[in-house]
Every structure is written in C-alpha cells, then in structure tokens.
C-alpha cells in the first residue's frame, strides 16, 4: 500500500498475475469451512462473535485483494474504512443501548 506511483492513471500498474487471487480464493474457502465447522460447536454467545469475526476476515480479503484496495490510492482506503467504522459504531451503540434497556 505504501509505494504507489501517483503518476500512473492506472492503479494496476503492478504486474497482473493469476496466482495471488487463487491463493486468496483458497483462503476464503478454508475460512468458510471454518465457519461451518465452528457453528457445529456450541460456544453460546461466542458462536455469533466467531462467525462475525471470520466473516470480517473474509470481507477484508475480498476488499483488499479482489477489490484491489491494496493497489488503490490511500484515499480509497480512507473512504472505505471510514464508512465501515461508522457502521460498526452504529452497531456497537445499538447493542450498548439494548443491553442496558434489558428488563425495561
């Protein structure tokens, strides 16, 4: 992400190759298998948290590699993660709210 040729209009000035994407795909399949396997075990509330963590890792791989965020300018990175951050904030505030409202 650090070295980026800002003079180049095309963000994919790096040598395109098939290999890395196939590796990411294998990683995504393994993580899917992991989610399914973990779902079989009852961790209680941790099950959902584990599932969401694995889903987040998978999304990160898709965003960075398949969606080329790794090779885009920092600005793209800032836009994407700022929007995701605020979605996360809404989720956390919502749950904080409902946790403390419990019993009312």
């Amino acid at each position: 992400m650090s070295s980026h040729d800002s003079h180049n209009e095309n963000a994919h000035a790096h040598k395109p190759s098939y290999g890395i994407y196939i590796l990411i795909w294998v990683a995504l399949l393994i993580l899917t298998g992991l989610t399914v396997a973990v779902a079989g075990i009852n961790f209680g509330n941790l099950t959902v948290i584990t599932a969401l963590t694995v889903a987040s890792v998978k999304s990160y791989l898709v965003l960075e590699y398949f969606m080329h965020l790794k090779h885009e300018k920092k600005m793209f990175w800032l836009f994407v993660y700022t929007s995701l951050f605020f979605l996360g904030v809404s989720l956390i505030l919502l749950f904080a709210d409902y946790t403390f409202l419990e019993g009312n």
Partner: peptide
C-alpha cells in the same frame, strides 16, 4: 459472506 452465518448457522 455476512448473510450466510447470520441466517443459516445460528
């Protein structure tokens, strides 16, 4: 990726 665990695996 998010729909799958939330609906099918809970």
């Amino acid at each position: 990726i998010f729909l799958f665990p939330l609906f099918y695996l809970i």
